[in-house]
């Protein structure tokens, strides 16, 4: 087991747990939770790719010189992309919960196999 790739592998396990929930669970809320976990795993993986050993946050304060900062800061690009991804994740969760509430009002169940049997 290579210790250098262990954090990446743990992030991929989070993704796998989310995927399992999305594929295997029959409860609508469990499926939404699975998608949220998938989101977390992907964000964590991207974040890990940009980390530098003992890195600082990419915020420049007045008493830092430029060369030193360049060699000690973590990568800002994945962070900016993940920030977008987190907020869009909230949008998708809001839409999914709205649909789940609507489905519950109509069919009075969260179980997708029961909804399928109701036929209309």
């Amino acid at each position: 087991m290579n210790l250098q790739t262990l954090p990446f592998l743990l992030a991929m396990i989070v993704v796998a747990v989310g995927l399992y929930a999305v594929v295997c669970k029959k409860n609508l809320i469990k499926i939404i939770v699975g998608i949220i976990i998938l989101d977390y795993g992907a964000n964590l993986f991207l974040m890990l790719t940009g980390y530098r050993e003992n890195g600082l946050a990419p915020i420049r304060t007045a008493n830092m010189n430029a060369d030193n900062f360049l060699n000690s800061s973590v990568d800002p690009v994945p962070q900016a992309l993940i920030l977008t991804s987190i907020v869009i994740g909230l949008g998708t969760v809001a839409l999914m919960t709205a649909l789940a509430i609507r489905i519950y009002e109509k069919y009075e169940t969260f179980d997708i196999s029961e909804i399928k049997q109701l036929k209309g």
Binding site: F8, T49, Y51, R52
Partner: peptide, 12 residues
């Protein structure tokens, strides 16, 4: 992941 650069060495 074996082909990836190790943790703590970003592509900078």
């Amino acid at each position: 992941l074996q082909a990836m650069v190790g943790f703590g060495n970003p592509l900078m």
